[in-house]
């Protein structure tokens, strides 16, 4: 749980901004030029949406210590809210719909975060299931949310910012990348602010936090609100940029678990961890299917793929919880430190 600051004393110090800036330069400058449509549609867009959802959940679970199994509900709330704002409010720019969708998700997050004022741990996790089932039920039951579509399916609107169309794979990728970059940067600022430290204080010792005067109730609800805002926006990206056509069933409990696995595998209380975890979750099934087809040929059909995915992913999660509780981030930092150390001593 403590992968917040790592002791880099033994490694040569690189400026902290260097790696993110280089990554962004590649993501904006190189990837759009060389990437195939498959790379964008099947890998990068789901990766970006799930990473952002992971960042959001990590603020709540990793930093503030409040376990939630309702992430997919907040994604759904964001996606359907953005769809309706876009549909029903004349002249509202896309960014406006997305922002308001985040606010709606945040409001729902506060409501379903209220039990956290009394409940902890598993009990809280179970109570957040209420959000999961309620939101999915409401979106299916009231067809107004999907503009009276028979099956509750919504189609994403055309994406454009100030008349500049972003409907191609590259356009949607750049759009998602920008939203994710901005929100991740703000999340990074948040967790190193006093509010972020209050989150950690409540996670590590709630009684002590209350005694020294941290407003515990307010801070918990704030964590729910901010987390749900980010997850809601991730839901908009999932619906508008990645899938383009979504239904409430796409945001089921499996999705919530997927996001929880992302932050556990990637590393709790780490912004980077969400990206590591999402990369693994997105790339792993694709790699497994390629590997399966390569090894077994036609025997490796979709049913086998689905089953082997579950088995291998389950085994991976167990292994991670035992061997590396601090997640891929801790693993990465250790490898990097060793490489730098080896490089230094040559």
């Amino acid at each position: 749980m403590t992968a917040i600051s790592v002791d880099f004393a033994s490694a040569p110090v690189l400026p902290k901004w260097l790696v993110p800036v280089l990554l962004l330069a590649v993501a904006y400058g190189v990837v759009p030029l060389i990437g195939s449509s498959y790379l964008f549609e099947a890998i990068l867009l789901p990766f970006l949406a799930l990473s952002l959802a992971g960042v959001g959940l990590n603020i709540l679970t990793g930093y503030a210590g409040q376990v939630s199994l309702g992430s997919a509900a907040f994604m759904a709330a964001g996606a359907f809210a953005a769809y309706n704002f876009n549909l029903r409010v004349e002249g509202l720019p896309l960014i406006g719909s997305i922002f308001l969708a985040g606010i709606v998700a945040a409001a729902i997050g506060i409501v379903f975060g209220l039990p956290s004022l009394r409940l902890k741990g598993f009990y809280l996790a179970v109570s957040t299931l209420a959000a999961q089932f309620f939101v999915q039920w409401a979106l299916t039951k009231f067809s107004w949310f999907s503009n009276n579509s028979a099956s509750g399916v919504i189609d994403a609107p055309r994406l454009s910012i100030s008349g500049f169309a972003l409907d191609g794979a590259i356009g949607r990728y750049l759009f998602a990348l920008t939203v994710v970059t901005v929100l991740t940067f703000l999340a990074h600022r948040l967790v190193s602010s006093q509010t972020g430290r209050n989150f950690i204080a409540i996670r590590d010792n709630e009684t002590a936090a209350r005694i020294i005067g941290i407003p515990v109730l307010k801070t918990k609800l704030l964590a729910f609100a901010i987390s749900s805002f980010i997850i809601g926006v991730a839901g908009v990206i999932w619906a508008f940029a990645y899938l383009r056509t979504v239904e409430p069933d796409g945001f089921d409990l499996d999705r919530s678990f997927q996001i929880l696995f992302i932050i556990i595998i990637g590393g709790l209380a780490s912004i980077r961890g969400a990206f590591f975890g999402a990369a693994l979750i997105v790339v792993f099934p694709l790699a497994l299917s390629r590997l399966g087809v390569f090894l077994l040929g036609d025997l490796f059909d979709s049913g086998v793929l689905d089953m082997s995915q579950r088995i291998v992913l389950g085994a991976l999660i167990i292994l991670f919880l035992i061997l590396e509780p601090d997640g891929l981030v801790a693993l990465w930092d250790r490898v990097r430190r060793r490489l730098l150390f080896a490089w230094q001593s040559t």
């Binding site: 749980m1 403590t2 600051s5 006093q194 950690i200 996670r203 590590d204 002590a208 020294i212 005067g213």
Partner: peptide, 16 residues
């Protein structure tokens, strides 16, 4: 103490 915070941040939290 807040185990996941640095010593400085722990002490500064006394002013939160």
């Amino acid at each position: 103490l807040f185990k996941g915070l640095s010593v400085l941040d722990n002490v500064a939290s006394g002013l939160a």
